[in-house]
Design a protein around this nucleic acid. Structure first.
Length: 925
RNA sequence: AGGCGCGUAGCUCAGUUGGUUAGAGCGCUACCUUGACACGGUAGAGGUCAGGAGUUCGAGUCUCCUCGUGCCUACCA
């Protein structure tokens, strides 16, 4: 026997290590799958069944975390499963250039070198980022390979590749042509540290205990004063008005009057606006259009100027003012001091409010007026049709895209219906530069696919390209079609779009999922399908979205670097083996709840891998013994053994039937994305049925001695191999490494495929499903468990065999007699006799179907036995009482369905029997 | 301010459209090194399903309230 990687030389199975060592095989198989290009997918002929997924691209310079591993484990299980169902399973990998994140990393390194990107200049800096990318960019994909992800590496992409960059530019130009892109001065979220605009989504809100300051603004005509309430007094330098509610009687006398803006020489008007809430603060609000989105809106309504008082780094920018150059919070302190000194600070109140911080660097975001590029998501394109947002809403409403779990559909819908225009521009250097050129002469903007040489409006040659780049999520939002060659109409695009499924975390539901839906529906509707106008249904980027949970640490804490509780998947893998970790994640991935990653659970699954390993050692030993005894092993004929004849041994018919049922269960569970259920089914089958029962029973049939039942041994071995091999296939999407190793070893250098991953998944239809065998076996199992229990109670020494008596109204006695060897092996039964009357002694035990007694001279612990029986009696009594009560209830009999009534009656009869027997046993004590 | 979850064994979690004795893994107790496996085997103990009210013949499951807990969205000076 030759183990493919573990040992180069031929060894006997007995020499295999007793403990499974994943590190010995995993890396080599991971490498084998990649170098042999086993998961490469050629574009199939039209009409072929395909299953296509796009990997949520990790940041190119990122490191793999537990969330990636969960995501990739789920995607891989599904990909392998679909592939084994004979479909063309394509999983496209790639990485994202991750604008801000990557730029920050490189800037950090520059800081370490004592320089800055500004000192370097744009061109040099971008070069440095590319260097950084080529140095660290491969790491996360290498880690992915280590997980066994069965992606098609030949299709790997990077969002800044030439082809993808060209597609980004094309899409931007088209949107511009359709009138959906505009540039203008608006209030945006500005990060003073990153010095760029960021989108609403990149702002994280945090509740904090703040203060509400009340400041007195005197009327110019001396007729009194208005007290305004603000949380941000430093912005008062940019005030251009005070707004009050038109219906607020307190302030009617001030309508139209001018106020003196404290600390300045400016005068500002009182305006009336419904936005001012009489209930809040003092009912009067200062208006600072350049530093607050609401104020900006008020400013628009009342035609007020905007006064920007801060620079890009959030320092006061008012030359000549005593506050000039102060950082915003220093300015606040000083302004409050000065107001206080002038007696204008009327009150300071405690006030809870939430403050927005930059998602990346946690700097407090400064709403800032600046010129940015926007995508008008609610506007009708020039070509006609729906707005981008409207189509994205419609696609989900119509069910062209479904969400699992379903609740996310609502989340998506809510967000989508309240969506604002998308700020596309970022003041970064790393990213797709916006293809727009500003004219120095006339100020017009030329948006172009190529590089223009002159202004499209006035023809002047003095044009310069826009310095802003696009939001990272713009290019990743295009991926479902750009990875297949859009804007070209390629065979890949025709075959693989729409993709089938998107598996991702809810944290990027809006960032990425919603954007893909918007951009996919928008662009792909313009791409004909089969020569005709493409429908919205065919334009969606994916048909289904499966949202998985967050992986937290064992204490349910979110993993974060600052908390120091990040679990590195690679470390865990090295400790427990990839298969064990994959299996753990799968079995904990129940929908709706986060996963508290548990090492204890992983340990349990490492034990499972070890169990599989040792069951393989057992199987290999039998094969070896068969060879020595000259008994045929027909590896090519295993399929036939999954259909044992009606006269085949009970355990053979049983285990095959159970395998068939389990295969059905797994197919159903995976079809519903119930990875936890699917994992539980294969685990229970492999350990609880195959190992715990079948392997023990089959030992009875495997007799390699001279003169033994050769045909019987041959048949048993064939069934054992067939079931074991099918079980490996059933497990392989979950645990690809160990199953590959054992499967290859089983075929001893001559496997029917290059990998277990390229075989077919077990199908119940290819096996027998013998309900009688299952029932009979279950009865025997019950009998064996009863006898084992009795033997403990009677203190029969482990090694000593004892005869039993069986009584049953049915045929359990005969079943026991027929299967006496099984009982001997599994319950140390030395002989079976069938009793003619019920067995109630304290050496007997009763179940619904039979009574069994162990015949053994014994001294029993009367007190313990009494306690046990009393407890049991109470249990039966409780059930009996409730079923009696129900059965005596006419309303129940009248309204409950017949099968429920029948079931309850049957239960009651059984309970009564058990109750009586237990009572008799108790009395006999 | 709105919205969405969660609360089931010591711990981590399952529990389908309400329906017969509420399950698993880990941990715990006792026994067992039996020719695949001590990362093992066997038998056990352990639950007022957060609390309360309601709907129903019947509630862990549906409704309402309370308590605890986690998250998301948001232009609340």
């Amino acid at each position: 026997m030759r183990l493919p990687f573990l040992q180069e030389k031929v060894i006997m199975p007995q020499e295999l290590p007793k403990s499974y060592d994943p590190t010995a095989i995993e890396e080599r198989w991971a490498q084998y799958w990649v170098t042999e290009k086993l998961f490469h997918v050629e574009t199939p002929a039209a009409g072929a069944a395909t299953f296509t997924q796009l990997l949520p691209p990790p940041n190119v310079t990122g490191r793999l975390h537990m969330g990636h591993m969960l995501n990739q484990t789920e995607m891989d299980i599904l990909t392998r499963w679909h592939r084994m169902r004979g479909e063309t399973a394509l999983w496209v990998p790639g990485t994202d250039h991750a604008g801000i994140a990557t730029q920050m990393m490189v800037e950090r390194r520059l800081a370490g070198e004592g320089t800055t990107r500004q000192a370097l200049g744009r061109e040099k800096f971008v070069e440095r980022v590319w260097e950084w990318k080529s140095e660290f960019g491969g790491a996360i994909l290498d880690q992915m390979k280590r997980l066994g992800a069965s992606v098609d590496w030949s299709r790997e992409y990077f969002t800044m590749d030439d082809t993808l960059s060209a597609a980004v530019r094309e899409s931007f130009v088209r949107l511009h042509e359709q009138g959906l892109i505009y540039r203008g001065a608006y209030i945006v979220n500005w990060c003073p540290r990153c010095q760029t605009a960021i989108s609403d989504l990149e702002v994280v809100h945090e509740e904090q205990q703040g203060k509400l300051y009340e400041i007195r603004y005197d009327a110019v005509d001396g007729s009194g004063y208005i007290v305004v309430a603000t949380t941000r007094p430093e912005t008062m330098l940019g005030d251009v008005a005070v707004a009050v509610n038109p219906n607020d009687e307190r302030y009617i006398k001030f309508h139209g009057k001018m106020l003196k803006l404290p600390l300045t020489s400016r005068q500002i008007p009182v305006v009336t606006d419904d936005w001012a809430n009489p209930e809040f603060g003092t009912g009067a609000v200062k208006v600072t259009p350049a530093h607050d989105p609401n104020d900006f809106a008020i400013g628009q309504r009342h035609n007020l100027p905007s006064l920007n008082v801060m620079d890009e780094s959030a320092h006061i920018d008012l030359p000549g003012s005593p506050y000039h150059g102060l950082e915003r919070f220093q300015a606040r302190t000083k302004i409050l001091e000065d107001l206080e000194a002038q007696g204008l600070l009327v009150a300071v109140r405690e006030h809870n409010n939430s403050v927005g911080k930059c998602d990346r660097c946690k700097t407090i975001v400064e709403p800032r007026l600046s010129k940015q590029w926007f995508l008008a998501v609610n506007k009708t394109p020039k070509r006609g049709g729906n707005s981008i947002a409207a189509d994205a809403i419609l696609a989900v409403e119509k069910g062209f895209i479904t969400f699992t779990p379903e609740q996310y559909r609502k989340t998506y819908d809510e967000w989508m219906k309240n969506i604002h225009d998308w700020c596309l521009s970022r003041q970064l250097w790393w990213g797709h530069r916006i293809p727009a050129w500003h004219c120095a002469k006339c100020g017009e903007i030329t948006v172009s696919r190529g590089t223009p040489t002159a202004c499209s409006a006035c023809g002047a040659k003095e044009i310069t390209q826009e310095t802003d780049v696009l939001d990272t999520w713009f290019s990743s939002g295009l991926l479902p079609f750009t990875v297949f060659g859009w804007p070209q109409q390629t065979p890949d695009l025709a075959t693989f779009y729409p993709t089938d499924l998107l598996v991702t975390g809810f944290d990027i539901l809006f960032f990425w999922v919603a954007r893909m839906i918007m951009l996919g529906c928008h662009f792909m509707q313009d791409m004909p399908k089969d020569g005709a106008q493409r429908t919205l249904q065919d334009a969606v980027p994916f048909k289904e979205v499966y949202i998985h949970a967050l992986v937290r640490d064992a204490d349910r804490q979110k993993m974060s670097k600052t908390k120091g509780n990040v679990i590195d998947p690679i470390e865990i893998i090295e400790h427990y083996g990839t298969d064990a970790v994959r299996f753990t994640l799968a079995s904990m991935a129940s929908p709706g709840t986060d996963i508290a990653f548990s090492e204890a659970r992983t340990e349990g699954n490492r034990a499972f891998a070890n169990k599989i390993w040792n069951s393989a050692r057992f199987v290999f030993m039998q094969v070896e013994r068969a060879k020595e005894a000259g008994i045929a092993v027909d590896l090519a004929g295993l399929a036939a053994a999954l259909k044992p004849a009606a006269d085949a041994p009970l355990e053979a018919r049983w285990i095959v039937s159970r395998l068939a049922a389990t295969a059905d269960d797994v197919h159903r569970a995976l079809g519903e994305y119930r990875f936890d259920e699917a994992a539980a089914f294969v685990y229970q089958f492999f350990w609880g049925e195959l190992c715990d029962w079948y392997l023990e029973i089959v030992k009875l049939r495997l007799n390699f001695d001279d003169g033994a039942d050769k045909a019987g041994t041959e048949g048993a071995l064939q069934t054992l191999l067939a079931v074991f091999e099918a079980a490996l296939r059933m497990l392989s999407p979950f645990m690809p490494f160990i199953t590959e190793e054992i499967w290859q070893a089983l075929y001893d250098g001559k496997p029917p495929a290059k990998s277990i991953a390229l075989t077919r998944y077990p199908q119940a239809s290819a096996m027998i499903q013998d309900a009688e065998a299952i029932t009979a076996m279950e009865t025997l199992q019950q009998l064996i468990v009863s006898v084992r229990g009795l033997r403990k109670d009677l203190a029969v020494p482990e090694k000593e065999a004892a005869p039993i008596q069986v009584y049953s109204a049915g045929k359990v006695g005969e079943l026991a007699e027929t299967n006496a060897p099984m009982l001997a092996k599994l319950a140390r039964v030395s002989g079976v006799t069938v009793a003619k009357a019920a067995l109630t002694g304290n050496n007997a035990r009763s179940t619904a179907g039979f009574d069994v007694a162990v015949l053994y001279e014994h001294q029993i612990d009367v007190a313990a036995e009494r306690e046990r029986l009393t407890k049991e009696l109470a249990k039966y009594e409780k059930v009996l009482l409730s079923s009696e009560k129900q059965l005596g209830n006419e309303a129940f009999l009248a309204k409950a369905p017949q099968n429920v009534v029948d079931g309850l009656q049957k239960q009651q009869a059984e309970m009564k029997l058990l109750y009586d027997k237990t009572k008799a046993a108790l009395n006999a004590l």
